[in-house]
Simulated scan of single mutants.
Amino acid sequence: MYFAIVAIDRPGASDVRTKTRPAHREYLSAPNPGVAYRLGGPLLAPDGTTMIGSLLVIEAQDLSTAERFAANDPYRKADLFAEVSVRPWDWGTGNPDKR
């Protein structure tokens, strides 16, 4: 099952994002039991360049596994986010597995 993780940065936390980004990217590429990272990237402000959050799509066996993955992200552990949601997601269009 796929899950969308949407996280919005705390105001004024851009330095936390910058400092933690290498660890976050390493986390996404490391093996995570029961989780496959599928796609993701930063959410942007209207200026199109300022990062204000994150969107990740993962494949996991259940919601609790997806929530555990989100909780262990270095960004989350560094208290970057003001809010985080983890929701089941149906990857209908553009899914390479459904071609």
Rank of each mutant, 00 (worst) to 15 (best):
Y75P: 02
N95A: 14
A66H: 02
I58R: 03
Y75T: 07
A82W: 05
V86L: 09
T93V: 15
A23S: 14
M51L: 11
Q61M: 10
V16N: 02
V16I: 15
N72V: 11
D79M: 04
R21A: 01
P22L: 12
L55N: 09
K19S: 15
A30C: 07
G41S: 10
A45C: 01
R25Y: 05
E83G: 07
S29C: 00
D62L: 05
L55Q: 07
N72R: 08
D97S: 08
A36S: 11
Q61K: 13
F81Q: 12
G53W: 09
A23N: 13
G34S: 09
A30S: 15
A66N: 02
P11L: 11
G53Q: 05
F81M: 04
G48P: 00
S54V: 05
T50L: 02
Y37I: 08
L44G: 06
G94L: 08
L43N: 13
R17G: 13
R68Y: 08
Q61D: 15
S85G: 02
T18R: 14
T18W: 03
R10L: 11
L28D: 03
V86K: 01
A60K: 09
L56T: 06
D47A: 04
S14M: 14
A45E: 14
G53L: 13
L55K: 03
R25K: 07
L39D: 00
R76S: 15
F69A: 06
M1T: 05
G34A: 08
G41M: 07
R68I: 01
V57A: 05
L55Y: 10
E26Y: 00
L28Y: 03
S54K: 03
S29R: 11
W91Y: 12
I58N: 04
P46D: 07
F3M: 03
A70S: 13
A7R: 04
T93E: 06
T65A: 14
T93K: 07
R17H: 03
T18F: 12
V57G: 00
G53S: 08
A71K: 13
V35C: 05
T18K: 11
Y2I: 06
D97W: 03
R68E: 10
